[in-house]
């Protein structure tokens, strides 16, 4: 589903964001991506979404080499990937329903189909009753659920979330991760970048640990937080 082959990303100033990173994520996997701030998590996700290009290496997403993907094909790649951000990134001037159905609308689906998809997806995240509200009228947890609905509306093969609970309290974070778990159970490949070590431990899923741009661990979730400490604490204050 997603393959990184010896991927390096070096920024113009010379800073190395990713250093010869290789891994494979199969269809239907749930993977946590973790590491200290500045470890390269967001850069890695931006490469999957083809927001950026690697300096070196090859990246396959859904069988497509995203490095050589023409600009005109990028939107079609992105339509197969749902994306969720820490700061929700909803369009404030559009209603919840309009935010969620933006992609079906630009795909040219009929209004009845848009309506069905929109309400079905909002029902999945428990917000069908807020369809006509505007994002700023919602709580943080509700806004993130709308963002997840937007990511899911096109039934993507992959869901990518970058610190999705970074702005939420513990209870709301639980709700959001429960949603991710349900999405995963339906067969979607889910990649979540997070600092939340307790949650990684409790989830018991595969974990990719980045540190200083290098992939320092790729395996099942550690049983105890202490197993992650040696890897994470080294770069914790490194930005």
């Amino acid at each position: 589903m997603i393959s990184f082959f010896d991927v390096t990303k070096r920024f113009p100033g010379g800073q190395v964001a990713l250093d010869r990173v290789s891994f494979e994520i199969g269809a239907g996997e749930f993977v946590f991506l973790t590491g200290p701030s500045g470890a390269g998590k967001t850069t890695l996700l931006s490469l999957i979404l083809r927001q950026d290009l690697p300096t070196h290496g090859r990246i396959l997403v859904n069988g497509r080499n995203v490095v050589s993907l023409p600009r005109t094909k990028i939107p079609f790649l992105r339509r197969s990937i749902g994306v969720v951000f820490q700061d929700f990134r909803l369009i404030p001037r559009k209603t919840v329903f309009e935010n969620v159905t933006y992609l079906p609308r630009i795909l040219g689906l009929g209004s009845e189909k848009q309506r069905t998809l929109g309400y079905e997806t909002l029902r999945r995240v428990g917000l069908a009753h807020k369809a006509n509200a505007f994002p700023l009228e919602l709580s943080g947890g509700e806004q993130q659920r709308v963002a997840i609905a937007r990511a899911l509306v096109n039934d993507p093969a992959i869901l990518v979330a970058d610190e999705p609970t970074g702005n939420l309290d513990e209870d709301l974070s639980d709700e959001i991760f429960e949603l991710f778990r349900e999405i995963h159970l339906r067969g979607t490949t889910v990649i979540v970048a997070t600092h939340d070590r307790d949650r990684i431990r409790r989830a018991g899923q595969r974990v990719l640990v980045l540190h200083g741009g290098r992939l320092v661990r790729d395996g099942d979730a550690p049983v105890e937080n202490s197993e992650l400490e040696p890897v994470l604490s080294r770069g914790e204050n490194g930005g």
Binding site: T72, P75, R78, R79, V83, I91, I106
Partner: peptide
């Protein structure tokens, strides 16, 4: 610009 960035990330083409 922020909205445009979001639209681009969810798969909107330059045409749209």
């Amino acid at each position: 610009q922020d909205e445009i960035d979001v639209m681009r990330l969810v798969g909107a083409t330059e045409f749209y």
